[in-house]
Design a protein around this nucleic acid. Sequence first.
RNA 1: GCCCCCAUCGUCUAGCGGUCUAGGACACUGGCCUUUCAAGCCAGAGGCACGGGUUCGAAUCCCGUUGGGGGCGCCA
Length: 488
Amino acid sequence: MKLYLNLLLQLSLLRVSLFRRLIELVRLRFAPSPTGYLHVGGARTALFNWLFARKNNGKFIIRIEDTDTQRSSRKFEEIILNSLKWLELSWDEGPDIGGNFGPYRQSERLDIYQKYAEKLVAMKKAYFTVYDNNNNVILKSFEKPLNFNEDRYSVVIKFIVPKEGKTYFNDLLKGKMEFDNKLFEDFILIKSNGYPTYNFAVVVDDHLMNITHVFRGEDHLSNTPKQVLIYNSFEWEPPIFMHIPLILGEDKTPLSKRHGGTSVSFFQENGFLRDALLNYLAILGWSVEKEIFNVFDEINNFEPSKISNKSVIFDYKKLEWINGQHLRRSPLDKVEKEFLDYLRIANFRIPNTNHEYFEEVISICREKVNTLKQLYEISYPFFFEDYSYDENYIKKYMLKHETEIILTTAIEKLSKSANFTLEEIEKILRSAAEELNMGTKKVFQTIRGAILGKLVTPGLFESIKVLGKKKTLERLNKTLLFRSNYAK
RNA sequence: GCCCCCAUCGUCUAGCGGUCUAGGACACUGGCCUUUCAAGCCAGAGGCACGGGUUCGAAUCCCGUUGGGGGCGCCA
C-alpha cells in the first residue's frame, strides 16, 4: 500500500514537471549592463531572445547586470528599459515588474552569490585569496580569512580550474565547442568589494532563474567554458547556448559612434520607425523570403539556427530604405501616431489642425521621404505660414520677369474654381500654362515655390488641394508681394 | 603570445557536390514615367580571398595560408 502511494506521488510529481514544461517550454533573458544606452547590437540580441521566447510561448526576462559599481547607473537602466519598451519587446519578468525569480538586479542578489561561492569553497572547488596592497598573494585558504584590515588587504574568492581535461558545450550556431582546461587559470568569483564577477553571477542567475536558452553576443563565446566549469561543479545542467555574430561598422571595427548613431534612442530621435528598426535588425544576418515585414507577424517563422554565422556590417542606407518602405506601407493612422510620438521626442511642435487636414498632409508627404524627420521637414510648409523661400527658388524662378504673370494668372483662374477638386486644379493649371505659352515645368515650379517655398514637394495638384483654395490664393499673393519688395 | 569564431558582388544574403556562363535586396550607373523630388518599372556594372588536396565533377567537402572579428580583467 505504501509502495503504491509512493508510486502515485512519483507519478503526480512527474505529471507536474511535464505540465510545467508544456506550459512554459522555454525561458530566455536579456541581461544588459546599465553602463550606457541600448546599442543596436544589444537590441538585436534582445530581439532574437524575445522572438524565440514568444514563438515557443515561453517567458522573456530582463535582468540587470549591474555588478560594475563604477560604471553602472540607474539612469542608464531606465534608458535601456525605455528603449526596449519603445521597441515593444515586452517582458514577463524584470526589475520594474518583478516576478517569481527576483530580484532582477544583480546588485540586489549579493547574498545569493556569496552563499553559492562559499558553497563551492566548502566543496573545495574554490578558495579564498588574500592580496596585499602590492597585489601579492599572501594567503590562499579554504577557511574564511579573518582579521585582514580592508585598507591593507583585499580578499576574493577564486574558482579552481582543473589542471587537466577538457570542457565541452554545444552552441546552436557554432556546433560542438571544446576547450582545454589548461587554457584557463583560477579566476575570481567574488570580488573584494563583495560583488560577483560576470562569469559567476551569470551562471548562478541563469540557473536560479531557470533559463533554458542563452542567446548572446559572440564576444561571450570564449568565456563560456569558464561558465560551464561552474555549472559542472554544481552539477547543474547548462542552458542551450547560441552566440550571435557581432555588428561592425563599415571599416569592420565594432560599430561605434564614429560610424554614426548606434543607440536605439538615436534612431528613435532621428525619425526611424520601431517596425523598420526591428525589421532591419531581424534581416541583418537572418534571411527570409520577403524583406519587408513586421517582426510581430513573423514570430512563427523565426529559426535561430538560420541566423548567419558571420559578423555583419551595419548598413545605414538599407535601414533608411526599409524605414521608407514601412512609412509608406503602414496604415496611415499608425504612421500618424508614430509621427506625433516622434515630434514629441524630437521636441518639434506643429500647430493644432483638424485631423482630416493632418491626415491628408501626412498622406501626400510620406510618399516622398524615408524618415519621420524628413517627413517633418517636407510637411513644414503645410503647417506653418512662416515657411521660407528656398534660395534656388528665388534665383531660378521667383525673380524671373514671367513670374508675375504666372502667379497672377494662377490666382485669377484658381479663384474661379468652384469645386477645387484634384482634376479641376490640374485642368486649370495646365490650361494656364498653355495660354501663357510656357512650359509646364516653368509654370508649375514657379507656383510650387510660391505656395510651399521649396522646389521639392509632394505633387503640385495634391498640395494645392490639401492646402485649400483660401490658403493657396493667400500664399500666391504673398509671394507676389514678397517679390515686389525683394526687387526694391 | 595563446585560444576561439568567421570568409560568395561595396553591403546583407541565396547556394548545402553536377540545374551556377553564381540568384535576390540595398547602394551605384543608364533609361522609362514625369510638374519638382521620390516612388514605381526596365536595363547595366560588380563577387565565390589564396594555395593545395578529395572527386569524373567543387562556391559547395578536407588541410594549409592570408585576412577580419572576439576572448585571455577584482569589465560585462
